[in-house]
């Protein structure tokens, strides 16, 4: 009887202390009030139109890799990596990896002029209301998300990339 009571006491005290410790650890580690997407998270679905008015829905690309690049025309590193992406676009399209770029709310004509100037052929999605930019919590430009065929984010790159890096990233999300 006494032994039994002692066990109950030990278990209840341990449980309470563990719960309190867990809450404390949660409070310390959860720094951001907005959920910041990290590697391993499922990429939130969205739907945007490109400059031609075609709808693109992220979940339509399930089973294939998506290289999701957020950019603006005024950002020099964005401009620098665009030709590299263009060079690799066709090759990886055939391998099941899609390059999608999202412009963060600039005037449409401005994007069109940029595209024509740079001779870019990959889809340029237009995030007119900055909804997807907020959804992906984009701070610096360019920011690139690598999304694998399962729809999970495998890497977040918050800087410009070289052609070699882009090649390796595209390869990393190629469906097997």
């Amino acid at each position: 009887m006494a032994k039994n009571k002692k066990t109950v006491r030990l278990i209840s005290r341990t449980a309470l202390l563990l719960i309190l410790a867990a809450i404390m650890i949660y409070a310390i580690t959860s720094k951001d009030k907005v959920k910041v997407l990290a590697e391993g998270d499922t990429a939130p679905d969205f739907e945007l139109i490109d400059l031609e008015g075609n709808k693109h829905q992220l979940s339509d690309y399930k089973g294939q890799g998506v290289f999701l690049n957020f950019w603006g025309t005024w950002c020099p590193p964005c401009k620098k990596e665009m030709p590299h992406m263009e060079d690799l676009y066709k090759e990886f399209e055939a391998k099941g990896v899609h390059i999608l770029t999202v412009n963060v709310g600039e005037p449409k004509v401005k994007i069109e002029l940029f595209r024509d100037d740079m001779n870019l052929s990959f889809p340029m999605l237009w995030d007119k209301n900055k909804t997807v930019m907020d959804l992906y919590n984009i701070k610096p430009l360019p920011t690139t998300f690598l999304i694998n065929p399962e729809g999970k984010i495998t890497k977040v790159i918050k800087q410009g990339m070289t052609e070699q890096q882009i090649y390796e990233y595209l390869e990393s999300i190629q469906p097997k």
């Binding site: 679905d45 969205f46 739907e47 829905q57 909804t131």
Partner: peptide, 15 residues
């Protein structure tokens, strides 16, 4: 201002 709401079930970014 004018406030708009996305349709139920519509994906972020949809018009």
């Amino acid at each position: 201002v004018t406030l708009y709401k996305q349709d139920e079930g519509a994906l972020p970014g949809s018009e």
